[in-house]
């Protein structure tokens, strides 16, 4: 096994008075896709948010190493520039800031951070157009406000488009499959597959098996009450689909 892209040890965090992560241990090696599953309220989104550095979450203990660095010591924007991408469960609408600009600013922030120059306008447009084709998105989206008036499915496709343009080392996709119809699910899955590479890792946070039919995970973890209660291969996801989460919750209690 190659060195872990992401290595989490004993991670505990709270929001307000509520402890939402109660000792998470997880290793995600480069080149692998891991699925994190679990019932509502198990801490899946909290884990995604803590990794991305969302304000409001207080880390109580434990450590997170990302490409050998102390992730928790970095600000959210530096985490992103280092190659961490969070795909939002509820992508935010920002009217007045256009999509193309955000994409370009995000790409340049990462490039400059890595000592590369800013991307030139032509090169940028080529890159974006290529990926928009993968995501079957109309180029008119580029000149619209970020997620402004997008349908649920369009927002999720836009998240994956951003991910494809930014080419992160680690993508944490928080319920990217929720609210997608069959066609959109296929497109989003194809987008995620495009990013699979030996030097990248992907964490799929999901409630259902159906995304995993299209993006086969290397490992599946079940999160319950803020802890990983079971890990296994792809077959674990199928078992969960059949049996639900209850049998694991009894163990976790």
């Amino acid at each position: 096994m190659s060195e872990a892209m992401l290595s989490i040890r004993g991670l505990r965090a709270r929001v307000g008075e509520r402890e939402v992560l109660r000792g998470i241990d997880l290793d995600v090696p480069a080149g692998e896709v891991h699925a994190i599953m679990g019932p509502n309220g198990s801490g899946k989104s909290s884990l995604s948010n803590v990794l991305a550095g969302k304000p409001g979450y207080e880390v109580l203990g434990g450590s997170v190493s990302f490409k050998g660095q102390d992730l928790l010591a970095l600000s959210p924007e530096v985490r992103a520039r280092e190659g961490l991408f969070l795909g939002f469960q509820y992508p935010v609408e920002i009217p007045g800031v256009n999509n193309a600009y955000l994409l370009k600013a995000a790409l340049n922030a990462a490039r400059v951070h890595r000592g590369l120059g800013e991307v030139d306008a032509f090169e940028f447009l080529q890159l974006v157009k290529k990926n928009m084709q993968v995501m079957k998105m109309d180029e008119a989206f580029l000149s619209r406000g970020v997620n402004e008036g997008f349908s649920g499915g369009e927002k999720k496709r836009n998240e994956i488009l951003q991910m494809l343009v930014l080419e992160p080392s680690l993508a944490v996709l928080d319920e990217t499959d929720s609210g997608l119809d069959i066609d959109a699910l296929k497109i989003v899955s194809a987008g995620i597959q495009t990013l699979r590479a030996p030097d990248r890792a992907i964490v799929l946070v999901t409630h259902y098996q159906r995304l995993l039919d299209h993006v086969a995970p290397d490992r599946v973890h079940v999160l319950a009450r803020g802890r990983i209660v079971k890990s296994g291969g792809p077959e674990l996801a199928l078992e969960l689909e059949k049996r639900g989460y209850d049998w694991l919750l009894e163990d976790a209690a």
Binding site: E77, L86, F88, P91, V92, L102, A105, L166
Partner: peptide, 10 residues
């Protein structure tokens, strides 16, 4: 936070 998570400075 959305913009920061995309690498933009505060």
């Amino acid at each position: 936070f959305y913009l920061l998570s995309r690498g933009l400075d505060p």
